[in-house]
Amino acid sequence: ETFPLDVLVNTAAEDLPRGVDPSRKENFLSDEDFKAVFGMTRSAFANLPLWKQQNLKKEKGLF
């Protein structure tokens, strides 16, 4: 299941849709939104070091 970017960005855990893991908001973006937000594919993002993934998520309001 995916959700629009505005539902996930800068949203407190208690305000997220049911079933969304607040530590993994990026997994609930569509592939198109994911690429638009991070400028890379999911596989490229997954290959980044964890610290870099976290920094990007913070920068984009998805942490």
Rank of each mutant, 00 (worst) to 15 (best):
L50R: 09
N10W: 05
A44C: 10
T2P: 05
V20C: 07
L5A: 05
F38G: 00
D6A: 13
L29G: 01
V9T: 09
K25F: 06
P22L: 04
V9Y: 05
N10R: 09
L16V: 06
A12D: 10
A46E: 11
E59S: 10
D6P: 06
P49I: 01
K35L: 15
K25P: 08
F34T: 00
G19A: 10
K52W: 11
L56M: 11
F28S: 11
K25D: 04
A46L: 12
V7Q: 10
N47I: 12
N55C: 15
P49C: 05
D31A: 08
D6R: 08
A36N: 11
F45L: 01
K35I: 14
G61M: 04
F3M: 05
E26L: 04
V9F: 06
M40Q: 01
R42G: 01
K57W: 07
W51Q: 08
E14G: 11
R24V: 09
V9L: 13
T41W: 03
G39R: 07
K58L: 08
R18M: 14
F3V: 06
P17Y: 02
A12P: 14
S30N: 10
V37N: 02
N47K: 15
P22Q: 07
L48Q: 03
K35G: 08
L5V: 09
K52Y: 12
K25V: 15
A44M: 12
L8K: 03
N55D: 14
R24K: 13
R24E: 06
T2F: 15
L50V: 12
F38W: 01
P49Y: 01
E14W: 02
N10Q: 10
F3S: 03
P22D: 06
F63I: 13
P49R: 01
L16D: 06
R24N: 09
W51G: 07
A12L: 12
A12F: 08
D31K: 05
L48W: 02
D31N: 08
W51M: 07
A46R: 12
P17V: 03
L48C: 02
D6H: 15
L56S: 01
A44L: 09
G61K: 04
L50A: 12
K35Q: 14
V9R: 12
L16G: 05
K25L: 15
M40T: 01
N10Y: 06
F38Q: 00
A36P: 00
D15N: 12
R18Q: 14
K52I: 13
T2G: 07
L8I: 06
T11R: 09
N27Q: 15
A44H: 10
P22F: 02
D31E: 12
S30H: 05
R24P: 03
Q53I: 02
N27V: 11
G39P: 00
E1R: 10
F45N: 00
N47G: 11
N47F: 08
D21S: 04
T2N: 06
L48G: 00
D31M: 05
F28K: 03
K58W: 12
N10F: 06
F63M: 15
K58C: 14
K57V: 07
K57Y: 06
G19L: 07
T41Q: 07
G61T: 01
F28Y: 15
R24Y: 12
E14N: 10
D15K: 10
T11H: 08
A36G: 08
L5Y: 15
P4A: 08
P22H: 07
V9K: 10
V37A: 08
F63C: 15
S43T: 14
F45W: 07
P49L: 01
L50W: 12
S23Y: 14
D21I: 06
N10G: 11
V7R: 12
K58H: 09
D6G: 09
L8G: 03
V20L: 08
R42V: 02
G61S: 03
K60R: 08
L48F: 04
M40N: 00
E1T: 13
K60C: 08
P49M: 02
D15H: 11
E59I: 11
P49K: 01
D33M: 05
V7E: 07
S23P: 04
G19T: 09
E14P: 11
R42E: 01
A46G: 11
K25M: 15
T41G: 08
T11K: 11
L5P: 07
F28W: 15
A12S: 13
D31P: 08
F3H: 08
R42W: 02
A13R: 11
L16R: 02
G39W: 02
D33W: 05
T11S: 12
F63R: 06
L5D: 03
Q53K: 06
E32F: 10
F28E: 06
P17S: 02
